[in-house]
Design a protein around this nucleic acid. Structure first.
Length: 236
DNA sequence: CCATTAAAGTGGT
DNA sequence: ACCACTTTAATGG
């Protein structure tokens, strides 16, 4: 599923300004990055990282959307993180473990930039601005993860659904149709840590309050302020 | 376009 | 929470 290099031009022309590779190399040194980069075109619902597989490298989303998941005891899927253009995926392989603790799956046709473990490790050890940015990124992720765990421990299902909707709204925004990161009801439920039936009931309740609008799979946030107010007591 | 399948939504236990 | 059912949307020929 991979073809070597350059079907997407060099990093210099890449529009993903948030990409850590883009950010930490200048026009001259991109040549080396590009020489070590694999472009992977991933079809919808194809997994490009499998839980428990040996760490082979790291991915950046060039374009498209992906979910990062962990499987619980009874095979229940928990969505850990959503990734879109410019986002890093597979960084959880970079600890003392030698296997990925997560799975990553494309939610639509998605193009990935891939770097082999050996190359990327060497870059981290020699390119300190990249390493520093990565450290900040890991710290932010840990902070978000802890804050979320704290909130979710106190929340009921409806609160978690509101929290999930606002998280997607804040990170990916919405257009005239609705939230820019479109998920099925089941996938949304897996983000909120609940079941699709309960998620659907919560959405209906929020719709009836006039805070959101649902048009098929599109969810439009009508009153973000009201939604925030509903769960503000969990942010102390 | 219609037929088949998948997903959304509802109601009962 | 779980299951069974109806309705609606997506897919593919």
């Amino acid at each position: 599923m991979s073809n070597k290099n350059n079907t997407k031009g060099d990093c210099f022309s890449c529009q993903n300004l948030s990409c850590l590779m883009k950010k930490n190399y200048d026009a001259d040194s991109y040549a080396d990055v590009v020489a070590n980069r694999y472009i992977i075109d991933c079809k919808k619902s194809q997994s490009f990282i499998m839980e428990g597989a040996p760490v082979q490298g790291i991915f950046f989303v060039y374009s498209g959307k992906a979910k990062v998941t962990r499987t619980g005891a009874n095979g229940k899927e928990q969505v850990i993180r959503l990734a879109a253009d410019g986002d890093i995926v597979g960084h959880r392989g970079y600890n003392r473990a030698t296997v990925y603790p997560i799975a990553a799956t494309a939610l639509e046709n998605t193009t990935l930039c891939y770097f082999h473990h050996k190359y990327f490790t060497n870059e981290m050890q020699t390119h300190n601005t990249l390493t520093y940015d990565l450290m900040l990124f890991y710290a932010d992720e840990l902070d978000k993860s802890e804050a979320r765990a704290k909130r979710y421990a106190q929340m009921n299902v409806k609160d978690k659904v509101i929290d999930t909707l606002l998280t997607i709204y804040d990170r990916f925004g919405q257009d005239e149709k609705g939230l820019r990161f479109v998920l099925s009801r089941t996938e949304l439920a897996n983000v909120a840590g609940t079941k699709s039936e309960q998620l659907i009931r919560s959405l209906t309740a929020l719709k009836n309050k006039g805070w959101i609008n649902c048009e098929g799979k599109y969810i439009f946030i009508v009153d973000a302020a009201a939604l925030r107010k509903e769960i503000e007591k969990f942010n102390f």
